[in-house]
Design a protein around this nucleic acid. Structure first.
Length: 591
RNA sequence: GGGGGCGUAGCUCAAUUGGUUAGAGUACCAGACUGUCGAUCUGGGUGUUGCGGGUUCGAGUCCCGUCGUCCCCGCCA
């Protein structure tokens, strides 16, 4: 049906007889000559219909409408001088058409599909007619970019000796972690498979199997509420390696990311990527996923205010708390209205209030707390925070964690307010040595990463005595303030795994019931191993500058986890339910 | 589970304090036009103001409920 695509004809094809197929993008009917832009995935070519070439074909061309699918035949011609279109790759030529076949008509599309900056159409409509939305050039570019990145992932990891192994979609529910999507078993009534939240246990078992270097572009499922960067099903670049340390995993991922940036012609970050420990990140940026596209570091002032005449600070220091500040450069003119909002943010983060000093353009300091500060304190403060005219200094005095949380949030707000974020720049950073445990609402120890994460060797002695102090051999990769992925070196010995379970309140019996297969496997020569999972969709979203994860997924779901195009989820036949031995207990929908 | 935004023509939006026959651009339809490429010109409004109820002489506008969608908090080992 075609000899060429709509994106490939150039000057060197002039004189050739060609056939093209594609969608009518626009029709410009001059009464005599008719111009039609024909589009396919590869580009746009102008087709010209002239009544003097073929009256019959010209008649048919008059009836062409947007999005009709046609096949045309004709001769490639150089466009007359002054009639070339530099905006088109094929703009030097056109196809003089003498035969036209309407392959399929199209209804008028429910929204404009033309490439020229269309007014933003509601996403609801785009998702309902996703097959039309995807036909748009900008979405075609995203689909192609996604494909190229996937290919690069496979090619890079293959070169590094990894092999891709598929793991089951029908797996087993484990109560830890996110809510599972369940699939009932017909053959064993009353039992359910769970769709994988991640292939975590399978990939560890593949290490026991001696696969040595595994990867998978793995579909994962989590039944939790959605966000702009969260879908119920998403894709991970899942990696696991044997006989490695933290540095080995990080090196592989550094190389992978650099390659993916290059593939999309996004300015690549220098590798090795910078690293911060969890504690450094919290102290300096107030976040375990800091955005390093801008500075605004938190400075510690605790020792400066140990004997301050300002009671609020002195008492905090005396109570073992910290006093820290953020110098929001150039925000000295921030209106009090905004500072009131920020005070509310600080309160929600746990601070009693928010003290601040605004430095005028003249260099004059203005603040309600100024009268409590000695000249020496001011001088020390000015030096440590690098205060200049026009700055805004925000103070926090409380427990270390509370101060970090508050100043971390204020840091983000200040960067936004000051317009410090350049959307064309990217900043990547590794965050390492996360705590192994944290306490949940009920006061129980739970794993920060997951329960298979290995503790740092040097912290093992206080595993039982001070479990919250124990750091783990874990690492997150953070891009532009977004958590891209995370991983760890895993526990490969049963005894240590059982100690961890015990601390988490998982007794021997329950541990055996839930993770018996894994524990047993550890006893059959499990090699030391570790790995990582990267959010493939999130990575694409950041690399392509997309506004939401939905833009880089062909058929995404809405915030209520609904597929508007397919109408899924949907009720099923009673017969299907009977076969599965499932009876519904659904609250009646309101009348 | 909670907080917030949005919902008017196919699409993107407007409509004064609650007030006459709900408008604009674009798309679409018809006609004209032989070099356009956001073609141009002339003409045409194609509407359950998401849905249901209420207040009112009168509701796109106010109130209650409901549905959909988006953003956020909780949640996401």
């Amino acid at each position: 049906m075609r000899t060429h695509t709509c994106g490939e004809l150039r000057r060197d094809s002039v004189g050739k007889r060609v056939r093209l197929s594609g969608w009518v993008e626009s029709v410009r009917d001059h009464g005599g000559v008719i111009f039609v832009d024909l589009r396919d995935r590869y580009g746009v070519t102008q087709v010209i219909f002239d009544p003097e070439d073929s009256r019959e074909t010209w008649d048919k061309a008059q009836r062409l409408r947007s999005q009709h699918v046609v096949a045309v035949a004709g001769v490639v011609e150089r466009r007359p001088p002054e009639m070339e279109n530099p905006k088109l790759a094929t703009g030097e030529i056109e196809v003089r058409c003498d035969r036209l076949e309407l392959l399929n008509a199209s209804l008028t599309p429910p929204f404009p599909l033309e490439a020229r900056d269309p007014a933003r159409v509601s996403e609801e409509l785009r998702l309902t007619y996703r097959y039309l939305d995807l036909r748009r050039a900008s979405m075609q570019r995203i689909l192609q970019a996604r494909h190229r990145v996937a290919l690069s992932v496979r090619s890079y990891l293959d070169r590094m000796g990894f092999i891709e192994v598929e793991t089951p979609i029908l797996g087993k529910s484990t109560p830890e972690g996110a809510r599972d999507y369940l699939v009932p078993s017909r053959i064993l009534p009353g039992t359910f498979f769970a769709l994988p939240q991640a292939p975590q246990q399978y990939k560890q078992l593949l290490m026991v199997a001696g696969v040595d270097r595994y990867f998978q572009l793995a579909r994962c499922f989590r039944d939790e509420d959605l966000r702009a960067d969260r879908q119920p099903e998403f894709t991970q670049i899942d990696i696991e390696m044997s006989f490695v340390s933290v540095a080995d995993v990080i090196a592989v991922v550094d190389g992978l990311l650099a390659e993916l940036f290059r593939e999309l012609n996004v300015p690549a970050p220098e590798i090795p990527l910078p690293r911060l420990t969890y504690q450094q990140a919290m102290d300096r940026y107030g976040s375990d996923h800091p955005d390093l596209r801008y500075g605004l570091e938190i400075v510690d002032l605790t020792n400066i205010f140990a004997d301050s005449t300002f009671q609020v600070f002195r008492r905090a220091v005396a109570a073992g708390q910290v006093v820290r500040a953020l110098n929001a450069r150039g925000l000295g003119q921030t209106p009090l209205r905004v500072l009131d909002e920020w005070t509310e943010v600080a309160r929600k983060a746990g601070l009693a209030g928010l003290a601040y000093i605004r430095i005028a353009g003249t260099g004059e300091w203005k603040s309600p707390i100024l009268k409590y500060l000695s000249d020496g304190e001011k001088e020390a403060l000015a030096q440590r925070a690098g205060i200049q005219a026009g700055d805004l200094v925000l103070f926090a005095a409380d427990d270390r964690a509370v101060v970090s949380k508050a100043l971390g949030e204020l840091r983000r707000l200040a960067a936004k307010e000051a317009g410090l974020i350049d959307p064309d720049r990217h900043a990547l950073v590794w965050i390492t040595e996360f705590p192994l445990f944290e306490r949940d609402e009920a006061g129980r120890l739970t794993a920060v990463h997951h329960p298979f994460t290995a503790p740092l060797e040097e912290d093992l002695p206080h595993l039982e005595s001070e479990p919250l102090r124990v750091r783990s051999q874990s690492y997150d990769i953070v891009m532009d303030g977004v958590e891209l992925g995370g991983g760890s070196i895993r526990i490969h010995q049963r005894a240590l795994q059982e100690r961890i379970f015990a601390l988490m309140g998982v007794d021997r019996q329950r541990g055996e019931a839930r993770f018996g297969h894994l524990l047993t496997a550890l006893e059959y020569g499990a090699p030391p191993h570790g790995g990582i999972a990267l959010g493939f969709d999130r990575l694409l979203m950041l690399l392509l500058g997309a506004e939401s994860i939905r833009d880089v997924i062909a058929f995404p779901k809405t915030q209520k986890a609904v597929d508007l195009m397919m109408g899924a989820p949907a009720p099923v036949d009673d017969l299907q339910l009977r076969e599965l031995h499932i009876r519904l207990d659904v609250p009646r929908l309101s009348p």
